[in-house]
């Protein structure tokens, strides 16, 4: 147990043995062939903070874990199929589809693993969703999608599938460093009436129970994730929003510069874990 002082967190935590779930030693192999790294040494920048990093998959019950092990059990794959059709469909004033420029979606191999990343031309750190919308507006002459809407999460999932099993490897130095620092600052800032930072739950108390939930490290290598709760794909920004709301704070918006910075930082905490999307969580 990594209990610190009796803070607001302690009030929410119930002793762990209440639910006999989650096999933290299980290994994730998808379709009997894609071997996922769900536990590995923490990246250098986390020295002193976390000894090792673990995918949220390790914190779920056996039944939920199994749902991600076969693409015909994983309901998230329905939306990957739908996005595949969208990939090939021309839209907007330019009469282009994603395929018009990128050909087969398999050309997207490796992309998910390095996002968010610095875009030199635009002079900003871009998330995958921002890049997708930039393509839609600039290349296709189409309307941008809602940042965390179902069209966007499905397309992110399709692109992510091309990188499944590859290690997350976002760059945190060079021009992205200041944004990364901003995200780190946010991660350790206490928000809301409950005065909770990301770290209070996901660094200090992962593995413990928060009510009936098994707290994970809050890794985002599996996003977008299909949640059993709302039975759809969810973006990392929607999850960030939910977390900050749960601290009883005014939250930031999906796609806001704050959440872009936080996504870069949280993604970097998972450098070395496999791209899992679409993962399945509760």
């Amino acid at each position: 147990m990594k209990f610190k002082a009796m803070t607001a967190v302690a009030a929410l935590l119930v002793a762990a043995p209440m639910l006999g779930m989650a096999d933290e030693e299980a290994e994730l192999v998808v379709n009997g062939e894609i071997e996922m790294v769900t536990k590995t040494d923490a990246p250098a920048h986390l020295e002193g903070a976390l000894p090792e990093i673990m995918s949220g998959w390790r914190f779920r019950s056996d039944e939920t874990q199994q749902t991600q092990m076969d693409d015909f059990d994983n309901p998230g794959m329905i939306f990957v199929d739908q996005a595949q059709a969208v990939w090939d469909t021309a839209e907007g004033s330019e009469g282009k589809s994603c395929a018009s420029c990128h050909n087969d979606v398999e050309a997207m191999e490796g992309v998910r693993a390095v996002y968010p990343k610095w875009n030199e031309e635009a002079g900003e750190v871009r998330t995958l969703a921002m890049q997708i919308n930039d393509c839609r507006e600039t290349q296709m002459g189409a309307e941008p999608w809602k940042y965390d809407g179902s069209d966007m999460t499905a397309m992110e999932a399709l692109i992510s599938v091309q990188s499944r099993g590859m290690p997350v490897n976002v760059a945190i130095d060079g021009p992205a460093q200041s944004v990364w620092e901003q995200g780190k600052e946010m991660y350790y800032t206490r928000y809301g009436q409950l005065e909770l930072s990301c770290a209070n739950c996901h660094e200090d108390n992962y593995g413990n129970m928060i009510r009936a939930d098994h707290l994970s490290q809050g890794q985002i290598n599996g996003f977008p994730v299909y949640r059993l709760k709302n039975t759809k794909l969810n973006s990392s920004h929607a999850r960030f929003k939910g977390c900050i709301r749960d601290t009883r704070a005014e939250t930031f918006s999906p796609g806001s510069p704050e959440f872009v910075a936080l996504e870069l930082y949280v993604a970097s905490r998972g450098n070395g874990l496999s791209v899992e999307a679409p993962s399945v969580r509760n």
Binding site: D70, F72, D73, P75, M77, I78, F79, D81, Q82
Partner: peptide, 26 residues
């Protein structure tokens, strides 16, 4: 809107073989 079936059936089997089928639909 957007109802998509997704079905897993092996491509071949032995005559009389019992196979497992999985289906999902949005």
């Amino acid at each position: 809107e957007g109802v998509t079936p997704r079905v897993k059936v092996p491509k071949k089997a032995e005559a009389g073989e019992v196979i497992t089928i999985k289906t999902l639909i949005s």
